[in-house]
């Protein structure tokens, strides 16, 4: 029992990220409404970001901003701070995500104007005409 408990404690973050990832992927593939597809895409992307940020966590570590001792010397114990590199990557990736979201929504508005609908099967019918 304890084994299992430790196992869950040690990995639950990765699991949650992967579950969210596949929920998002499901939305992107199966949903018929294009807006829902975009929402699926947002969930899918953030799940990956969650996964990568999880890498940066260290037990007993604080935020990666250096603290100073009273005599103004920085405390440089690397184990005391979370890993900053994943944070940097994810900052960039969040920005990429919002950029893609903006473009997707713009295309969605245009699709609505051209085809009069954002349901995938109706668009395909409209294109066949």
């Amino acid at each position: 029992m304890d084994e299992l408990f430790y196992f869950i404690i040690a990995k639950y973050n990765y699991w949650a990220a992967l579950v969210l990832l596949f929920i998002g992927l499901f939305g992107m593939i199966v949903k018929n409404n294009l807006m829902k597809k975009i929402i699926g895409m947002v969930i899918f992307q953030t799940a990956i970001l969650l996964f990568i940020v999880s890498i940066g966590v260290k037990r007993g570590a604080t935020v990666p901003i250096l603290q100073f001792s009273p005599d103004k010397q920085p405390l440089l114990d690397a184990t005391a701070y979370a890993n900053p590199l994943p944070h940097v990557l994810i900052l960039t990736a969040i920005v990429v995500g919002v950029a893609v979201l903006g473009v997707a929504l713009a295309l969605l508005q245009k699709i609505q104007r051209v085809h009069g609908t954002i349901e995938e099967d109706e668009i395909l019918e409209d294109m066949r005409k």
């Binding site: 473009v103 295309l107 699709i111 051209v114």
Partner: peptide, 14 residues
């Protein structure tokens, strides 16, 4: 082209 581009955006993002 918009719908085709949208599909491409989805696949490209995946």
């Amino acid at each position: 082209a918009y719908y085709a581009t949208f599909r491409y955006l989805m696949m490209g993002t995946i």
